[in-house]
């Protein structure tokens, strides 16, 4: 089966540009508040949103996303709220995937979660602490419910693991540009470009998204020059402090960034 995200990457390819993917945790600052912010990301120019599942022990997240997750949990967000946020995005014609640490899904039931996410109109799941080696039930459920499975690779991944992870992936491969946790950074790591070219040797044709650290249009343009998607998380969480206008403005800046390269080509 073709990837649910294939049409997105085909359209961006035809425009000679990278896709823009924005992340925000569901339930931050409230469930309805997060609906409005995710909407603003799409209005501002994101091609796809990652709806984050707030989790008590986010070991791959830096202080910004940790604080947002904690706030969302304190406000009482539940996994079923995350599904309802996805549903409202999809109902409005937006594209959404879920980003989640694995225990909430394990607890909900892997197949039930896949079924309910697909029914809500979600397109796939990004799994920061689930490697394909441990993902048998998820791979089966994703297959059964036609969801993309987006695994991560890192600069430390060996060639063998890059190949195996790419083979298990559908939709796009998520390349963490640095060794470290999430958080906006001043410069885009040089490791990102190297990692993307290594991935391309092992997985011709599989789109590669680069995340961890991007925070403005200039950085987005730089990443867009070698990746198929630019993924922005912590910077959106920070922008959420300025509400819907802040998030829309950041999305617009980043959207210009991912088109700069195409403009130069034209």
């Amino acid at each position: 089966m073709t990837a649910r995200l294939a049409p997105l990457f085909e359209a961006c390819g035809a425009d000679h540009r990278a896709a823009l993917i924005g992340y925000l945790p569901a339930g931050y600052p409230t469930v309805d508040g997060s609906r409005a912010l995710l909407r603003a990301m799409l209005d501002g120019g994101c091609d796809l949103v990652e709806v984050g599942v707030p989790y008590s022990d986010p070991v791959l997240d830096g202080p910004t996303i940790q604080a947002a997750s904690e706030a969302a949990l304190r406000a009482g967000v539940r996994l079923r709220d995350v599904l309802s946020v996805v549903e409202s995005i999809a109902a409005a014609g937006g594209r959404a995937v879920v980003m989640t640490y694995w225990n909430p899904v394990h607890r909900y039931g892997v197949d039930s979660f896949a079924r309910d996410l697909a029914a809500a109109g979600g397109l796939g799941v990004i799994t920061p602490d689930l490697i394909p080696d441990e993902a048998q039930d998820w791979l089966a459920a994703a297959q059964a419910h036609d969801l993309d499975r987006i695994f991560l690779v890192a600069p430390s991944s060996t060639d063998q693991r890059l190949a195996a992870t790419a083979a298990a992936t559908r939709g796009f491969l998520y390349a963490s540009s640095v060794m470290g946790v999430t958080g906006a950074r001043d410069v885009v790591s040089s490791a990102a470009g190297t990692l993307v070219s290594r991935v391309r040797e092992h997985a011709l044709g599989l789109p590669v998204g680069v995340g961890l650290g991007v925070r403005n249009g200039a950085q987005a343009a730089e990443v867009a020059s070698f990746a198929d998607a630019v993924i922005v998380g912590s910077a959106f969480v920070t922008a959420a402090g300025a509400g819907v206008p802040g998030v829309r403005a950041l999305a617009a800046d980043l959207a210009t960034g991912v088109r700069r390269h195409a403009a130069q080509l034209a």
């Binding site: 791959l60 602490d129 991560l152 430390s156 060996t158």
Partner: peptide, 11 residues
Amino acid sequence: GRFVPEALIKA
């Protein structure tokens, strides 16, 4: 098992 980020697998 190993339920950790891929970044740690090599180590």
